[in-house]
Design a protein around this nucleic acid. Structure first.
Length: 491
RNA sequence: AGCGGUAUCGUCUAGUGGUUAGGACGGGAGAUUCUCAUUCUCCAAACAGGGGUUCAAUUCCCCUUACCGCCGCCA
């Protein structure tokens, strides 16, 4: 049995898309499960739409997701180069081979002629298939065309290959996830494998690259199904072993259209910027199609790999539900060790002077504010009151809470009593409880109302983290200063 | 238009020729808490439609419908 080798072959015409990340994940899982190799190949054939920035983004995103490749542009391998643009000199040889064996021919048609053919087909309500008018050009005719300055493109001869390797025009293959798939080769036009400018087309280059890189299983999106038939024929015409194919359903936006920025983040790096954890992202995306045999959805990539069977992947499209991703992200945030969380949160706290807090205070702050975080970025708006002497009071908190008679009398009492309190967590906890009990007893004020007053004065809002923790971090001086100021302001 | 694919709660899915069709997110109700949130408990929510095959079909077959994909000298 030959070695399992799979690949992800992104085109660097944009940042790594979440859909590509999922395809990469399934390839990675398949490799892991089968002790195979996961290779990364950059398909930058189209120089105009390609940029180094995107290449870097693809590398970084894949690494951040933990999808490490065994062979690739940066780490090398025995089947390089792994960047398609650096492989341009190896394609002509195979084109020539196809030309020599009659599986390909030169096509001198101009874009205008081709366009006319297509329009004709459209007008006749027929599916467009290339006319093959250049299939049997004589040498004289070709010479003449060449003399006119025309540069030929090379087309693959579908019918020839079909007849040479298959008894029927129905071409079938057994898809790893969808089962038997087939098409009538009469419906496939002779497609271009090498452009008139000498560059290979996608369908040709992938075959050469996959064959030379000894890729055993091609796992990709189902938008490639129709390419598969063409590619199989090329593999055969060149005498290469045909790999197995597996086609995954697509990821759709909640409105069933293609997932785009309009729906939210689409690039892995954008999700990260927004405060998603890559562990959550990868876990979530795995659940789009794959499901755990034990029902436990929260799993690491390694755990998923153990439980992974490609044939059990759902073959239908699935909708990218941001809500579930958010839930999963908040779950992962809760699971994060405190020290790591403290680091991960820092990028979202740059507007504050973190140096004003001791490490102990910062730790405490993270501990008491982490609970409601859905995104790491949520921390930004959750902590302003931990910084500075003064605090900004929300207008509605000022009028709705602080300015009320109840709040004012509670605060006056709070200030008075708190002056005598020893400022330790244990003691504050106890004193605050006594304080609430006192007002409940005295005026029947609900505990939460009592706390609203204190909270509003100290934090400027009516909701937030554990009050004891807040007071402790702020310290006695600042806490009392704010309480006093809240009273003065209202009088 | 043609060709190919897909079809279980709103969403991701499990599942079976005979099940109270299960779980998760989301939604609703309640409990706990100093607020928000968390957590916990409970509830509502699905086999697209029509034909077959069969004692029995959500499950197997066919058709319809819906949706997705592909029809480039893009990848």
């Amino acid at each position: 049995m030959s070695e399992v080798r799979v690949r992800i072959a992104p085109s660097p015409s944009g940042n790594l898309h979440i859909g590509t990340a999922r395809t990469a994940l399934f390839n990675y899982l398949f490799a892991k499960k089968n002790n195979g190799k996961f290779v990364l190949r950059i398909e930058d054939t189209d120089a105009e739409r390609t940029s180094q920035e995107y290449v870097d983004n693809i590398f970084d995103s894949l690494k951040a997701l933990g999808l490490n490749w065994d062979e690739g542009p940066d780490v090398g391998g025995n089947y390089g180069p792994y960047t398609q643009s650096q492989r341009f000199d190896i394609y002509p040889k195979y084109v020539q081979q196809l030309l020599d064996s009659g599986f390909a021919y030169e096509c001198f048609c101009t874009p205008e002629e081709l366009e006319a053919e297509k329009e004709e087909a459209t007008a006749a309500k027929k599916a467009y298939v290339y006319s093959k008018k250049c299939e049997n050009l004589s040498e004289e005719e070709k010479a003449k065309l060449r003399a006119e300055g025309r540069k030929p493109a090379i087309r693959f001869n579908i019918a020839k290959a079909q007849k040479a390797f298959h008894s029927s025009t129905i071409l079938e293959f057994d898809d790893l996830v969808k089962g038997k798939l087939h098409v009538d080769t009469n419906l496939i036009g002779d497609f271009v494998i090498m452009k008139s400018n000498g560059a290979p087309t996608y369908n040709f280059a992938v075959v050469i690259d996959d064959a030379l890189m000894k890729i055993s299983h091609v796992i990709r999106g189902e938008d490639h199904i129709s390419n598969t038939y063409k590619q199989i024929l090329i593999f055969e015409a060149l005498g290469f072993e045909v790999p197995r194919f597996g086609h995954l359903g697509m990821i759709l936006a909640p409105d069933r259209s293609k997932l785009s920025k309009r729906h939210g983040a689409t690039a892995v790096s954008d999700f990260v910027k927004e405060g998603y954890l890559t562990d959550a992202l990868i876990n979530f995306v795995a659940l789009l199609g794959w499901s755990p045999s034990d029902g436990q959805e929260i799993k690491t990539v390694d755990e998923i790999a153990q439980d992974f069977r490609i044939g059990e992947i759902s073959s239908s499209n699935s909708i990218f539900e941001y809500d579930k991703l958010k839930w999963m992200n908040s779950h992962y945030i809760k699971m994060l060790p405190i020290e790591e969380l403290k680091e991960r949160l820092k990028p979202y706290l740059t507007k504050y002077d973190l140096s004003s807090l001791t490490d102990e205070q910062y730790t405490k702050m993270v501990e008491i504010t982490r609970e409601p975080l859905t995104l790491l970025s949520d921390i930004t708006d959750a902590v302003p009151y931990f910084f500075g002497k003064d605090v900004e009071i929300e207008p509605e908190t000022q009028t709705g809470t602080l300015d009320t008679d109840v709040a004012q009398k509670v605060l006056v009492d709070f200030l008075e009593k708190a002056k005598a309190w020893e400022w330790t967590e244990e003691n504050l906890h106890e004193k605050l409880a006594e304080f609430r009990a006192y007002w409940k007893e005295k005026d029947g004020i609900k505990p939460k109302v009592t706390m609203w007053a204190v909270r509003a004065a100290i934090t400027g809002r009516t909701c937030g983290a554990d009050m004891v923790g807040i007071l402790e971090i702020l310290g006695k001086e600042t806490s009392l200063y704010r309480a006093e100021k809240a009273i003065k302001l209202a009088v």
